[in-house]
Simulated scan of single mutants.
Amino acid sequence: MGGAAGPVTAEDTRGEGGEQAGSGEEPGQPRRPRLPRWPRRLRPPRLPWGLSRRTALLLAVVATAAVAGFGVWLLYGSSWLRVEHVRVEGTRELTPDQVRAAADVPLGEPLAGVDTGAIERRIEEALGRVAEAEAVRDWPDGITLELTERTPRLVVAKPGEEGTYVEVDAEGVRYAEVRERPAGVPLLVLDLDDARSDAFFGTGRLRAEAVRVAVALPKAVRRDTRTVRVRSFDSITLELTGDRTVLWGSSEDGAAKAKVLTALMKVEKDAEHYNVSVPSAPAASGG
Rank of each mutant, 00 (worst) to 15 (best):
G3N: 09
G3E: 15
G6A: 14
P7S: 15
G18K: 08
G18Q: 14
E19V: 06
A21C: 03
G22W: 14
S23E: 15
G24I: 09
E26T: 04
P27T: 08
P30Y: 00
R31Q: 11
P33V: 05
R34E: 15
P36M: 13
P39G: 10
P44S: 08
P45E: 12
G50R: 14
S52L: 06
S52W: 10
A56I: 05
L58D: 07
L59W: 01
A60Q: 10
A60T: 12
V61G: 11
A63W: 11
F70G: 12
V72C: 00
G77H: 14
L81V: 08
R82D: 06
V83F: 09
V86N: 11
R87I: 10
E89G: 04
G90W: 01
G90M: 05
T91E: 07
E93G: 11
E93L: 11
L94C: 15
T95K: 13
P96T: 08
Q98C: 13
R100D: 03
A102Y: 05
D104W: 05
V105H: 07
E109Y: 05
A112Q: 04
V114W: 01
T116K: 12
T116S: 08
G117W: 10
E120W: 05
R121N: 08
R121Y: 12
I123F: 04
E125I: 09
G128I: 09
G128L: 12
G128R: 07
V130Y: 03
E132R: 15
E134M: 03
E134F: 02
P140S: 07
P140V: 05
D141P: 02
G142N: 08
L145A: 13
T148D: 10
P152R: 06
L154E: 02
V156E: 07
V156P: 07
A157Y: 01
A157S: 12
A157G: 10
A157K: 14
E161R: 12
G163A: 05
T164H: 03
Y165L: 05
Y165T: 05
E167W: 02
E167M: 15
E171A: 07
G172Q: 01
V173R: 00
E177D: 15
G184F: 03
V185S: 09
L188K: 03
V189Y: 00
L190Y: 07
L192V: 01
L192T: 03
D193S: 10
D194E: 14
A195I: 02
D198R: 03
G202I: 01
T203E: 14
G204V: 09
R205Y: 01
R205E: 10
R205C: 00
L206A: 03
R207M: 02
A210L: 00
A210Q: 06
V211L: 02
V213F: 00
V213R: 00
V215S: 01
V215G: 09
A216W: 04
L217T: 02
P218M: 02
A220I: 00
R223A: 01
D224E: 02
T225D: 02
T227W: 01
R229E: 01
V230L: 11
E239P: 04
E239Q: 11
T241W: 04
R244P: 02
V246M: 09
A256E: 13
L261A: 00
A263F: 03
V267Q: 15
A271P: 06
N275D: 15
V276Y: 10
S277V: 14
P279F: 01
S280Q: 14
S280G: 13
S280P: 03
A281R: 15
S285Q: 13
